[in-house]
Amino acid sequence: MSEEIIKAEGLTKIFNGNLVAVDHINFSVKAGEVFGFLGPNGAGKTTTINMLITVLKPTEGTAYILGNDISKQNTEVRNVIGVVPQEYTADEDLTGYENIILCADLYGIPRNVSKKRALELLQLVELIEFKDKRVQTYSGGMRRRLELACGLINRPKLLFLDEPTLGLDVQTRAATWNYVRMLKKEYGMTLFLTTHYLEEADALCDRIAIIDHGKIVVIGTPEELKNSLGGDIITLSIKQNVDITNLVKKIEHVKEVKKENDSYIIKTGNGEVTAPLIIEALRKEGYVVTKLSLTKPTLNEVYLHYTGKSMRDAADESAESVMARRIAMGRARH
């Protein structure tokens, strides 16, 4: 089996001949990793997923899932992936159990296998007590879990989660994160998820691609992305009224020192290690540190740095134009 579970090559989707939703993106996802697509609404995340899960045909370029071309080997791709969509797709008129069996039938799994598997999965997502209740009576969190169970029915090698925690309360979100971690750890599953929650990407993903206006802006581990901003920031003040800029600069790991009023702003790759070194070095010279704080960059800052706007701005950014874009895409299909 190839090490690359997903390999996208110039993947592009243009709706109605002019609306570029996904613009020549390239990336690859390795076996066993949790890969996150991070971006504001309308950035092209769902369109990318829809192409990867063979619901939409790429306009240009293609992607390979476990070596199968998504535009040509549809069936092979569909058999090895599981999909947990953004929406609640379970049929409200059917029970949880019936819904899972329906999913199993769609994959052509024989009844004797699917019955056993359905119960296992309902156990896994803690819905076994409610299996014969109609989905109508389920709460939002329960419905999410049911979607997850449906997505796992064919024992996929690769699971797609489209905005898995959208609109969930804090507890349910935490529970969803735990499921994701468990699938990765215990089943060695590869997961591809989209989100517009930075903390979610940070907490779950091994690697993140930031996507904006249909293009991938940057790819890397959350640490790499944060470090690419220049690392942590240490702010410190000393008792003595002496300029220590040159002294601090010589300390290991320190990248940059700036004096602002009475405090020094120090950029470093690894704040936890550098801070004690600085204190130690200053004490040796007889200086007394009066204040010290350590700030770690968040993905929010990474996002801000790479897209030129914060997540919140992006959401506000002409809400109308984003809406218009979404509507146009909706019309175009899905």
């Binding site: 069936t75 969509p85 609640y88 797709t89 769609l106 449906c150």
Partner: peptide, 15 residues
């Protein structure tokens, strides 16, 4: 089925 996303889900299965 389209609005609720069911259609897309079915489209992603081998059916």
């Amino acid at each position: 089925d389209r609005r609720l996303g069911f259609l897309n889900k079915v489209l992603s299965t081998p059916v």
